[in-house]
Nucleic acid binder design. Structure first.
Lengths: 246, 246
DNA sequence: CAGATAAATTCACATATATGTACATCTTCC
DNA sequence: GGAAGATGTACATATATGTGAATTTATCTG
């Protein structure tokens, strides 16, 4: 069950992150199609907790820097080592595609760092974006780091859906693809989850964290050169990863 | 009316900001005394939206960097000019007390930047902290920047409460104190709102934003030297504020 | 400076929602 | 290796909560 008002808080914050200017109660209510009275309650709650204020009289609400302060506290624990951002930054520059660092979240994989392609037609992904762990290159690069038992436990929770023609729709199909990936030396996906999207990924264990790097873009651009891209990812990791670490 | 689940989202985030490590459903439920099933729904919602993930198997949930990315977007609009942080940083260093930048939020004043005193006994305030606009030095330094009509409009919404012996409990009392502040050249408060707390503040208009700076600490330390402190604030503002700006 | 219009706020009630209970799954310790 | 305990998940139901309508407050317009 989705908790509506919890989701609404996130929606409001995303709204401000996009619009980047103060908004009045009426504007927010209209934007979301929420009743004014409900919007009033929500804004009052956020204000009362010190997360929203009125920068200038009658110009509406805007988030206080408290969000930033809180997010900093949270993220300064185990931040990703700086070379991982360099990694996806270099990969994106060299391939012209979107490159990301991905982490597990149950049956999903979450993007925890992203450098977007500059191309007009590109894979649009943001930090926090989630994809099924079994039906994506990045996700399978995570699964490769699991033990058989851990994978089985994940499989039991997966609802196998036919997202596209090549989506693996059984445990056996996923396991087979994993074996192929090992043989091949990297994970790949051609529209397994998102139409027209192709990607190459490899596991990226950091300390005891299981992450992966992925480069993804439109099938017609990536398709012919998945192998090259995968090799580039591997080389770039080799170059940037400090020799001491695992 | 307070929106419970909206507040809960904030509570969870604050919880993580404090504990700074992943937490399981059970831990979170126990910490807040929430039923497991409700906690489950909340965590599921936050996860689904890409704000929570499971860094490692069975080790529980932790916020994704999405919070940080969003907070950055939001806060990079009209950030406070760097000299304002320098300002409170210098003030805190020189006085040994807590110094803050404060903005209006209806009948309240919000702390939007804070440098805490290093002293063991100190004014403990964080970004996002809110205080009544009429019963604090910092708040009154904001009111001084309002027109008479704007002040009247604020007064109508204030619930006058006797927070301490010196709290102004009528419009007239507030207006008198404002007149005294003008004559004196700065705003002050001696336990008007928080027991044993004293502070000195002056208005700090930046562009069309109405802000104020305040230095606050225990009455016994600040009391004897409010004048000095206020003068120091004024001098420091003069020194740091770029000459061009208002 | 009215009178009109739009925005913000309040409140009582129907309903969407949080939770108690039951079940499944995983972990631990003997 | 197996049983007890802890943790995570599903669902029906009573109740806390969101909302439509009414009221108050602010803002525009001629």
């Amino acid at each position: 069950m989705i908790v509506r008002q919890a989701a609404n808080v996130l929606e409001i914050m995303e709204f401000f992150a996009q619009s980047r200017k103060p908004a009045t109660l009426a504007e927010i209510a209209d934007h979301f199609g929420w009743p004014r009275s409900s919007t009033f309650n929500l804004l009052a709650t956020l204000s009362e907790k010190g997360y929203l204020y009125e920068p200038r009289p009658r110009a509406g609400f805007y988030p206080t820097p408290r969000w930033l302060a809180m997010a900093r506290m949270i993220s300064e624990v185990e931040p990703l080592p700086p070379w991982t951002h360099q990694l996806i930054s270099d990969l994106s520059a060299e391939t012209g595609e979107t490159a990301s660092i991905v982490a597990p979240a149950g049956v999903m994989a979450v993007f925890i760092d992203v450098v977007e392609s500059a191309a007009a037609i590109r894979y649009f992904a943001t930090i926090g974006h989630r994809v099924p762990i079994h039906a994506t290159a990045s996700g399978r690069a995570l699964l490769l780091q699991y033990s058989q038992e851990e994978r089985d436990s994940v499989y039991r929770k997966i609802e196998f859906k036919q997202y596209g023609p090549s989506t693996p729709i059984s445990i056996e199909a996923v396991e087979t693809e994993l074996r192929n990936s090992i043989a091949r030396g990297y994970c790949q996906s051609f529209g397994d989850y998102s139409r027209d999207l192709a990607g190459a990924a490899i596991p990226l264990p950091i300390g005891d964290r299981r992450l992966s790097v992925v480069v993804a873009g439109p099938e017609f651009r990536i398709g012919p050169k998945v192998g090259e891209v995968a090799a580039l990812i591997a080389r770039t990791v080799d170059r940037l990863r400090p020799k001491a670490s695992a």
